[in-house]
Every structure is written in C-alpha cells, then in structure tokens.
C-alpha cells in the first residue's frame, strides 16, 4: 500500500468498526486488514491503548470451550469517534482540494 497509516487513523478505524457492533480480536483484525496493510501484531497495542484511554471495554464470552474477548466501545469512545469523523472530513476536503486542482488558499 502506497499510503501509510498513522496511529491516529488506526485508532479511528477501530473505533468506527466498534461503533457499529462489538467485535472480538480476530474479526476486528480481519476487518482492519481489509483497508490497511497491517500485521496482527500492531492491533494488540492499539486495542490496549484505546482501552487504557477509556474508549473501549472488554468482556469475555465462551465459545466452543474457550473464551472470546469482545471489545465494546464506551460513550467516551463514541464521542472520540465523532471527533475523528469530523477531523477526517476536514482532512479529506483539503486533500481532495489539492488532488482536484482547486486552490484552497
């Protein structure tokens, strides 16, 4: 992938996925991998950081004799998600302005 992902964008993607429904680690990773070229190893630190920030919580659910750890977005996480969305729209507008040849100055 030509365009690299910074940690802010990665956080925003994880929060966006979890804003729709709770997910467990494997599925969350697969979903993020569809849009980003990341190895699984980078997602655990991201999830842990988001959890420490209070933007998501975890709960365990038994599945075929073992545990699945689900991640759920908190209300703080949802407002952070809203902030990321508006930031992204602003950023996209400026990038597309340059791509489209319009002067934004």
């Amino acid at each position: 992938m030509i365009f690299s992902i910074n940690s802010g964008l990665l956080d925003a993607c994880v929060l966006a996925i979890l804003s729709r429904s709770d997910e467990y680690g494997y599925r969350l990773t697969q979903e993020v991998k569809q849009v980003m070229d990341i190895s699984e190893s980078t997602l655990y630190p991201v999830l842990r950081r988001l959890q420490k920030s209070g933007w998501l919580t975890t709960y365990d659910q038994p599945f075929q004799g073992r545990n699945r750890r689900y991640y759920r977005i908190t209300s703080e996480g949802l407002s952070q998600h809203t902030l990321y969305l508006s930031e992204w729209k602003e950023y996209r507008k400026r990038i597309e302005g340059i791509f489209g040849g319009e002067s934004t100055l």
Binding site: G25, Y26, T29, L47, R66, R68, R69
Partner: peptide, 12 residues
C-alpha cells in the same frame, strides 16, 4: 492479557 490475545488469535 497480551499472551491471551495471541492465543485467542491462533485459536480463531
């Protein structure tokens, strides 16, 4: 916590 994330990943 970190180890169980990767164990679960292998399981899945």
């Amino acid at each position: 916590a970190a180890l169980s994330f990767y164990e679960e990943y292998f399981d899945e």
